[in-house]
Write a protein that binds this DNA or RNA. Structure first.
Length: 256
DNA sequence: CGTGTTTGACCAGCGC
DNA sequence: GCGCTGGTCAAACACG
């Protein structure tokens, strides 16, 4: 259990949807659909968790991994989000239980916590994770109309693995990668120790990182995994994903 | 000055 | 009901 096993929606290893969804929303309506489908699984199936951990090696180029996304649940989400984000202190800070945003997680072998995905993220919180020496950071997309969130935490089993969980979908094009970012940026991450205490229960916050637009990977060798109880992603699938990603990127370059 | 981070506090859900 | 925990807020702060 890498700490992300609770609420992620299901994804098929073969869908390749993650990258598609993240990278080419406008061109991937059908993929969006799939996404929606995933996210709209019956609430009753509370265990929607087949986590998405792809075994795709991440080259720096892949930093565009999550460019813009769909408009899908955005309506719902935005409404909900904007509601509480702006000054709704007392009443119901939390999201309605019934409303689940499309969510997926992936694990990345990386030294940096905050993997670049082409979007601008604003950190809005950080928490110590139970049974883990590493904090979990919370980010929101800085686009005003976009309520996408993501959580970043390190696996306690393999501290070289960063677990990133996206929640929601971007309702705007990627600000930095109109058609897919293929550049590389150096990392600015600093990994600090514990710097602060939290509130009750020993939950504490850490100052650990710098999130910025392109704080991606020094680690040339990031790896994405499928995490889930059956963490075995067929090799074919791995290859498929890799191919898919690389071909995507190629076509993207061409488009540029 | 605008943008993003830090961090203590608050709130709600959940399990016992 | 209570305590624990995850998620979020927002003021203060840092930085370019």
């Amino acid at each position: 259990m890498f700490g992300v096993d609770e609420h992620q929606d299901c994804y098929n290893t073969t869908t390749s949807s993650i990258f598609d969804l993240l990278m080419f929303p406008s061109q991937q309506q059908h993929q969006q659909q799939r996404f929606i489908t995933c996210s709209s699984l019956p609430e009753s199936s509370s265990i929607l968790s087949d986590h998405l951990i792809n075994n795709v090696p991440v080259t720096p180029n892949l930093s565009s991994i999550s460019s813009s996304s769909t408009e899908l649940a955005a309506d719902d989400y935005q409404e909900d989000h904007q509601h509480k984000y702006k000054k709704q202190l007392k009443p119901n800070k939390k999201k309605q239980k019934g409303k689940k945003e499309p969510r997926f997680a992936f694990m990345t072998k990386s030294e940096v916590d905050h993997l670049d995905d082409g979007f601008r993220w604003r950190k809005y919180g950080q928490k110590a994770v139970k049974n883990s020496p590493f904090p979990r950071s919370y980010y929101r997309c800085t686009a005003s109309s976009c309520g996408v969130k993501k959580r970043v935490e390190r696996s306690i089993q393999d501290t070289s693995i960063v677990v990133t969980t996206y929640e929601g979908v971007h309702t705007h094009p990627c600000p930095l990668t109109p058609r897919g970012w293929v550049g590389v940026q150096p990392v600015t991450t600093t990994y600090g120790g514990r710097v602060g205490g939290g509130d009750n229960g020993g939950r504490s916050h850490y100052g650990d990182y710098s999130s910025s637009l392109f704080s991606t990977n020094n680690s040339l060798q990031e790896k994405r995994f499928w995490n889930s109880s059956n963490s075995s992603l067929a090799k074919d699938d791995h290859g498929l994903l890799q191919d898919m990603v690389s071909s995507r990127m190629r076509s993207d370059l061409i488009e540029e």
